[in-house]
Nucleic acid binder design. Structure first.
Lengths: 213, 213
DNA sequence: CCATTTGGATAGTGAAACTCTCTAATATTG
DNA sequence: CAATATTAGAGAGTTTCACTATCCAAATGG
């Protein structure tokens, strides 16, 4: 496959492919001469994965590269790969020195302790959760244990299902890709479903019971 | 309150406040002379909400404005407001003319029919869900009814809880803000919790049962 | 009365993700 | 084999977004 064909098969412009090559997101094709290189099915898969991450979840290219590097690092097991992918996908959150932050942090810790979740103290999702709680509280709304438990249970249900679908015996190439997908792309699905569920509940409660939609 | 004080109370630079005023995100203060205007508590609340949306969920300013306009439109009831906020928050998704899209669309329709959710046919969350499914399928992975049901149930649990917390009798100003918050900010909480839950499940399954984390 | 603040307008910045242009070397096709 | 098209590689240019900085003239505030 040459660049133009790679472009056609993926729908990505040649200029963009060249850009990805320059940025090291896509490995170089095998050069057959000074002005020619051939690309394989692997390149096409990789390209599709990049586009899925970028278009599907708006992941910045620097983070995409971090994820791809982790996929290619054969010394990492699935559990740590999942952590690495999450780390790359989680936006940085700097703790602020406010009362809300401290209260939110306590909520986070208590929740994790209550549920007994095995989570690394350095997991970037911790401050992210704290930040989300602190933001809502900063607007003057409570985020109590009842709400957190409900959300946590819902999150755990999806996580169980996600891990059910990973086959640790599958070829590493695939298993590793699968982990990237469940962590990065399934979020989109959950968020879309949440919007639909809210609409449903809202229709039932805030309108009559006989409305069509 | 003058601009400088508004800036101090909110932590947002004066230059940025002026920018928001120019962009119509923040209503003008009440002018007391050609070079002086006073801002109220309402301005401060509004400013905090803008920052929460921008920092908390990376909502583009154009969408923030759409949300704020909906909040200010007193002719809209809570149910429709929720729809409007969701509409503003949901990224546009253009259907593609591929087999994956059509299959994903069928999955979406069947899921909603199976669950009996009352969802408008024009809800932008539909194509968003379809797009998410189609993207995952385009990478060669199945998204079956089992997975969709699990995710849908989880989503519905959070939606029930969200609507429980809305007080339809509260002053419109507050109820309306609450709706914006649950649709926009609670997503972040759910996603963060999902990451933590995945780590927990992954630790239990992909590692031994005695590992510390 | 004089340094400081403000409103209002215009212009500039920096990051991110492309997109374009160019060159010399090859490939393809009629 | 000659005309046309394609490619790798590198650099520069473009667009969008969200600010940030600079000016200026009017107006406080001490």
């Amino acid at each position: 496959m040459r660049v133009s064909e790679l472009s056609r098969h993926s729908g990505v412009p040649v200029a963009t492919i060249k850009y990805y090559l320059r940025e090291g997101l896509l490995p170089k094709g095998e050069a057959t001469s000074a002005t020619q290189a051939v690309y394989s099915e692997t390149h096409l898969r990789r390209l599709r994965l990049i586009r899925a991450l970028v278009e599907g979840s708006g992941v910045p290219l620097t983070k995409v590269r971090a994820i791809l590097d982790a996929l290619d690092d054969t010394g990492v097991d699935l559990h740590h790969l999942l952590g690495t992918v999450q780390y790359a996908l989680t936006p940085e959150t700097t703790p602020t020195d406010t009362p809300e932050w401290r209260e939110a942090e306590r909520n986070t810790e208590e929740l994790l302790a209550r549920l007994g979740w095995r989570v690394s103290p350095s997991s970037p999702a911790r401050p992210r959760l704290t930040h989300a709680i602190a933001t809502v509280m900063g607007l003057g709304y409570q985020v109590g244990p009842r709400t957190l438990d409900t959300y946590a249970n819902a999150a755990h249900m999806t996580a169980e299902r996600d891990l059910d679908r990973i086959d640790p015996a599958a070829p590493r190439e695939r298993a590793v890709e699968h982990v990237a997908i469940i962590t990065a792309l399934m979020d989109q699905m959950l968020v879309a479903l949440r919007a639909l569920a809210q609409e449903d509940v809202s229709a039932r409660r805030l309108r009559g019971t006989d409305a069509r939609y």
